[in-house]
Amino acid sequence: MAEHEAEQQPTTVFPLDEVRELIALMKASDIAEVLIKRGDDEIQIRRTSATPAPTVVAVPGAPTPVAYPAPTAPAPLPAGAPEATSGAAPAEEATSTGITVTAPMVGTFYTAPSPKEPPYVQVGDEVRPGDVLGIIEAMKIMNEIECETHGRVARILVQNGQPVEYGQPLMVIEPF
């Protein structure tokens, strides 16, 4: 009977598909850490660097975490779109024709607070630091994208309701 018990695999409190779903949710938001307890078992997932890929951290009493391969590089940008560089907070990046405002997260970009209201900004509008340029909805949370420089909106590179990726250029601001 002892031989039969040794052959059985221990049941996991945190199935692999649930762990993968948690990691995907973290990638789609700005959540830095998650801790889940089920009885005496725990699982903690934490981002350890400025990159958006979370890592799984072993917690005493928890099942052994599963290692995942590093994420692949983001998809190439459409022809003619400004290049985005990676960084801890890629809110705005300088280009030769202005400052490119990039998406700080994955989600859906909206130009106005609601469909019946006018857009926050239009091409040609003057903007100042702190002005709202648009909203990115991620996991039913509306995240305002604020301007970080004084200037004029030169180009808007995404449409209302368009899905955006982390680091994707949203608009170009020509500084004053």
Rank of each mutant, 00 (worst) to 15 (best):
M1D: 12
E3R: 12
A6G: 02
P10K: 10
V13M: 13
L16F: 08
E18Y: 06
E21K: 09
E21T: 11
E21F: 07
L22C: 06
A24Y: 07
A24S: 15
M26Q: 10
M26D: 11
M26F: 09
S29G: 00
D30V: 11
A32H: 11
A32T: 10
V34W: 01
L35A: 10
L35R: 14
K37R: 15
D41E: 15
E42K: 13
I43A: 00
Q44S: 03
Q44C: 09
R47Y: 08
T48M: 08
S49F: 00
A50S: 09
A53S: 11
P54N: 05
A58C: 02
P60Q: 01
A62D: 15
P63N: 10
T64R: 05
T64W: 00
V66R: 01
P71S: 11
P76D: 00
P76I: 00
L77P: 02
P78M: 08
P82I: 08
P82L: 05
A84Q: 11
G87R: 08
G87H: 06
A89S: 08
T95P: 00
T97I: 14
T97P: 00
G98A: 04
G98N: 04
V101M: 02
M105N: 06
F109R: 00
A112D: 03
P113Y: 10
P118W: 12
P118V: 13
P118S: 14
P118I: 13
Q122T: 10
V123P: 03
E126C: 05
E126P: 05
P129T: 11
D131R: 05
I135C: 04
I135G: 04
M139A: 13
K140D: 02
H150M: 10
G151E: 04
R152P: 00
V153Y: 06
R155W: 03
L157Q: 01
V158P: 02
V158R: 04
N160L: 09
P163V: 06
V164Q: 07
G167N: 11
P169W: 07
M171K: 06
V172G: 03
P175L: 02
P175G: 04
